[in-house]
Amino acid sequence: MTQYVVLSAILFTIGCVGVLTRRNAIVVFMCVELMLNACNLAFVAFARQHGNLDGQITAFFVMVVAAAEVVIGLAIIMTIFRTRRSASVDDASLLKY
């Protein structure tokens, strides 16, 4: 079981680093999704370890939430993209960062 948790931690870290270092909004967004999926993996692994199903049910809900996030995120990114023809986070810098 530990391997799964470690794997999920690694995935989570990759996602996290990706969010912090990448500049393309869509890539950043995908990294966020990667983090969520790392969470799913952890949930399922822990569910197996504890022998109850709470973790697996949670994984379902996380998927739902991830999907909702995708829908809303893509909508926002697309609006910006169409306005500015770029998906780079840096280009969106009217506001002081």
Partner: peptide
């Protein structure tokens, strides 16, 4: 076209519904 995005999003929404319907 944006249309494809919308289709994809709708798909996700309904796919999620199915996730809950199966169990």
């Amino acid at each position: 076209p944006v249309k494809y995005f919308i289709t994809a999003m709708l798909f996700i929404v309904f796919d999620i519904e199915i996730i809950f319907l199966y169990p």
